[in-house]
Write a protein that binds this DNA or RNA. Structure first.
Lengths: 211, 211
DNA sequence: ATGATAACGATACGTACAGTATCGTAATCG
DNA sequence: CGATTACGATACTGTACGTATCGTTATCAT
């Protein structure tokens, strides 16, 4: 459950300390398994991914996989952790930061299996609390750059100090999540600018009192 | 693929027209299957739901299920269609409408399997285009009341006429979707008001010019 | 060197479930 | 009343999970 290899009883390559008797685990096999997992996730998606398929693609026995990961799910979680997340970009202004970061992130969705793996893990977590405990820290780390940009904006005075930044981050990411996962819309980098602008300025007409 | 029973070649109970020879399909069995599907979805979630389990719970043979739905997925889609969606509430003001509708909707998440079924279907659709064609119209219908409330606000002058209402709806729903599905947060009706307020007013400080 | 240990790829196995096919039975139409 | 079709039940095939067991190979301790 650590940040390293998972829940195997042995150490793969990093994390020296215990000497360990017998043949050490092959870091090469470890990487081959994760690479094959990502490849197959991209090709067939999560639900059609089989451990036997991963073993075959990686040139590895099934036991070698089950020796490291207790089931298909933790394996996919670890492979998912290697996919790109938000990357912090500091343009000096909130709107510029957000637009640059989101544009970059959406590009990753076109070149990686993020678009299929992400919802699969989320769906599994919906009725699998254990997965949540492993997945949530990963997801939280992925959006930290977004929170950093918002904090810079507070320091700059662009955001009022009382604003809930956690909620603000959800407001920024929300429309993308909805369109990508719930509505299956194609990803178009041109949709980023109006999205960010609306989240920053709000839906309601600012210069009109209703009554 | 219609709005009725799915893709069976016979008609269940509604839609008179063809006389049909032989024993008619049992509407009772139809309902028992859908009810059992929803029960099991709530109990074990989507991925652990088996057609055999549904048949057993419904007191029905497996063939009776496959005679009406070609596979597990369309069955779940139809069961999903019976779950509650947004309900239009007109309070006379945009903020009131949205807060009331979202509060009501979140309550439904606590009393139905919405919270597990929704992400499961979405995940499956991510790498299953056929499902998207069946699911998307259902999802679009579910949020129509939300769009209606936004249109009323435009007519009232609460929203500037040039605002993209489709995007605005995503901005309203986004934070809930993110928190519920991606972050696995508990549902708290008290989170609705600040959520709506932030989406309406925007993240950026309105009375401050950055430079 | 050599023996103990453990991972390696390969493969066989038991279990579970999807989806199909086939029972004998029951309901509806002409 | 006979033709037709759905019914619940059950047997069947195929696939994939997860476990166990091959003989082999790499590393450590002696």
């Amino acid at each position: 459950m650590g940040a390293e290899a998972g829940s195997g009883l042995r150490n793969g390559d990093g994390d020296a300390g215990a000497p360990a008797a017998g043949r050490p685990r092959s870091g090469e096999a470890h990487r081959a398994i994760l690479d094959a997992t990502l490849e197959l996730l991209q090709e067939v998606g999560f639900s059609a991914l089989t451990v036997e398929g991963v073993a075959g693609r990686a040139g590895v026995g099934k036991a070698t996989i089950y020796r490291r990961w207790p089931s298909k799910l933790p394996l996919v979680v670890e492979a998912f952790g290697q996919l790109p997340a938000f990357e912090d970009i500091d343009t000096g202004a909130l709107a510029g930061d957000l637009k640059a970061m989101l544009t970059r992130y959406l590009e990753d969705f076109l070149s990686t299996p993020l678009a299929t793996v992400y919802p699969s893990l989320v769906a599994e977590r919906a009725h699998n609390p254990e997965l949540g405990q492993v997945l949530d820290p990963v997801l939280r780390g992925r959006r930290r750059p977004l929170e950093a940009a918002l904090q810079r904006a507070v320091a700059r005075g662009e955001i009022a100090p009382h604003v809930d930044l956690d909620l603000a981050a959800d407001l920024i990411v929300g429309p993308i999540a909805v369109r990508l996962f719930f509505r299956g819309m194609k990803i178009n980098p041109g949709m980023v600018d109006p999205m960010v602008d609306l989240a920053l300025d709000g839906i309601r007409r600012s210069a009109a009192r209703t009554e």
